[in-house]
């Protein structure tokens, strides 16, 4: 008994896309020097925001825009506390997760048991449903959006003036401030972008994978996205690789459990599925250890990450 490589790949894409989206957003946020642990909360806000808009407007595109807005609102709330009121970023981020979980559950009460219009295909049905070509054309628009965002984010950080300012703010907020850049405004923008991306990631769950609302439906993927940013060393290209690597590992766990290796590669069936499930976290720890053991220069973490900015004088 064989298995279908194309279908497996498409499952992996489904597992990777939300963490890629949320990871890209969080990476930009962290590059500006802000650590937002509220990704899970913003994802849930996006999931319910997008779902509610989908139910009310029957327009999946508008639903994704609303999901982004809901995530960004969560992010901006975090910004008000951490940037304007200088609260501790770690604690505030955790609070945002608790808040987002609770608020999404509350808002979701009236949407439980409903279903939404799924996305149509962006490509002609002949391509999207083609037994082989669907591996390229058979996805939700959000998947293509995520993939396009990878080079865009990389280009933004590396080659644009705005990207340079963002990095400067994250590396040395005082210098950026004394050069006349508005550190707080830059960070607000970065947090809003991170929130919007997390929101779209949440909408990928509630609009695409399982078009429904269920409380806590992201089930901890926000935390995996946070680990992914560290794993990727704050680089967009590596984030893409990491997201798909994590996706493959998540899929391997299920594949092994279903006895998928049985005839193909019986040796691999001996490995307990828990091993695959733990791998993303083990690998993140290993990468962290490598990063911190390397000499200066290899460390790509923003120098001001997690530190509040208090302009003096």
């Amino acid at each position: 008994m064989g298995f279908d490589v194309i279908a497996s790949f498409m499952t992996i894409v489904g597992l990777s896309t939300p963490i890629l989206l949320a990871g890209l957003g969080e990476m930009i946020t962290e590059k500006s020097g802000v650590l937002n642990l509220g990704v899970e909360g913003m994802m849930l806000l996006g999931a319910i925001g997008g779902f509610a808009a989908g139910v009310l407007t029957h327009n999946p595109w508008l639903a994704v825009v609303c999901a982004a807005a809901a995530g960004a609102m969560g992010g901006l709330l975090f910004g008000v506390f951490t940037l304007s009121l200088n609260s501790n970023q770690t604690a505030t981020g955790l609070a945002l997760t608790i808040f987002g979980t609770g608020l999404s559950s509350l808002l979701g009460l009236s949407f439980t048991g409903m279903i939404v219009m799924p996305f149509g295909s962006v490509f002609p049905v002949a391509l999207a449903r083609h037994p082989i070509l669907q591996i390229i054309f058979g996805y939700s628009p959000i998947v293509y959006f995520a993939l396009i965002m990878v080079p865009l984010v990389a280009w933004f950080l590396r080659s644009t003036r705005a990207g340079l300012i963002l990095r400067a703010v994250g590396e040395n907020d005082r210098s950026a401030h004394s050069l006349g850049y508005n550190v707080i405004l830059v960070r607000y923008s970065a947090i809003a972008f991170g929130g919007a991306m997390a929101g779209i990631a949440g909408a990928y769950f509630s609009l695409v994978i399982t078009p429904m609302w269920a409380e806590r439906m992201t089930a901890g993927r926000g935390w995996i996205a946070l680990a992914l940013v560290v794993f990727a060393g704050w680089k967009a290209g590596r984030l893409l690789v990491g997201a798909y690597l994590f996706g493959v590992l998540m899929w391997l766990e299920l594949f092994a459990k279903a006895g998928g290796f049985g005839d193909v590669l019986p040796v691999a069936q001996i490995i307990p599925s828990q091993f695959w499930a733990a791998m993303p976290f083990i690998m993140t720890v290993v990468v962290l250890a490598i990063i911190s053991s390397r000499d200066k220069g290899g460390d790509n973490a923003p120098a001001c990450l997690g530190k509040p900015f208090l302009p003096t004088g």
Binding site: M10, R216, K257, A277
Partner: peptide
């Protein structure tokens, strides 16, 4: 009967991916 235990009672994304995998295996 192919059996997958997902180590959770409630994890919609994982339930979805596991279902995909079961379908994929026939």
């Amino acid at each position: 009967v192919k059996l997958v235990m997902i180590d959770s009672w409630f994890d919609p994304p994982k339930e979805a991916a596991a279902t995909d995998t079961l379908i994929n295996l026939g």
